[in-house]
Amino acid sequence: MSFTLATWNINSVRLRAPLVQRLMEEDAPDVLCLQECKSPVEKIPVELFQALGYTHMIGRGQKGYNGVAILSKLPIEETASEDFAALGHARHIAGRLSNGVTVHNFYIPAGGDEPNREINEKFGQKLDYLTELRDYFHAQKPEKAILVGDLNIAPREDDVWDHKKLLKIVSHTPIEVEHLAQVQDSGAWVDVTRQDIPQGLLYSWWSYRAKDWDGADKGRRLDHIWATPDISNAAHSSRIRRDARGWEKPSDHAPVFATFDL
Rank of each mutant, 00 (worst) to 15 (best):
M1L: 08
S2C: 01
S2R: 10
S2P: 07
T4F: 00
A6P: 09
S12A: 03
S12D: 07
R14V: 13
R14Q: 13
L15F: 12
L15Q: 15
P18A: 06
P18V: 02
V20N: 03
V20A: 02
R22V: 04
R22H: 09
E26H: 12
D27I: 02
L32G: 00
C33H: 03
Q35H: 04
C37G: 13
S39Q: 11
P40Y: 01
V41W: 00
I44R: 02
V46T: 04
F49L: 04
A51N: 05
L52S: 03
G53Q: 06
Y54E: 01
I58W: 03
G61S: 05
G64A: 14
Y65G: 01
V68N: 06
I70W: 02
K73M: 01
T79A: 07
S81R: 08
D83Y: 10
D83A: 12
A85M: 00
A85T: 04
A86N: 15
A86Y: 11
L87F: 06
H92Q: 11
H92L: 08
L97T: 00
L97V: 02
N99K: 04
G100P: 03
T102H: 07
H104Q: 13
F106L: 15
Y107H: 06
I108F: 13
A110G: 12
D113Y: 10
P115V: 04
I119P: 07
N120G: 06
Q125L: 15
K126M: 12
Y129N: 01
R134C: 12
F137C: 09
A139Q: 12
A139F: 01
P142C: 10
P142D: 09
E143S: 14
K144Y: 08
I146V: 12
N152F: 10
N152R: 05
D159T: 05
V160F: 08
D162S: 14
K164E: 15
K165W: 05
L166D: 03
L167W: 00
V170I: 14
S171C: 13
H172W: 01
T173H: 08
T173M: 06
P174C: 03
E176P: 08
A181P: 05
A181L: 13
A181E: 14
Q184I: 12
Q184W: 03
W189L: 06
W189Q: 05
V190W: 10
V190C: 09
Q195P: 09
Q195E: 10
Q195K: 14
Q199S: 11
G200L: 03
L201H: 13
L202S: 09
L202E: 02
W206F: 08
R209S: 14
K211Y: 13
G215T: 15
A216Q: 15
G219P: 04
G219T: 07
R221M: 00
D223L: 04
A227H: 07
P229V: 04
D230N: 08
I231R: 09
A234T: 14
A234G: 07
A235R: 08
H236G: 05
I240Y: 09
D243E: 15
D243Y: 10
D243N: 12
A244C: 12
G246H: 06
G246I: 05
W247D: 13
W247F: 13
W247Q: 10
P250K: 01
A254C: 14
P255R: 07
P255N: 08
V256S: 05
F257P: 03
L262Y: 10
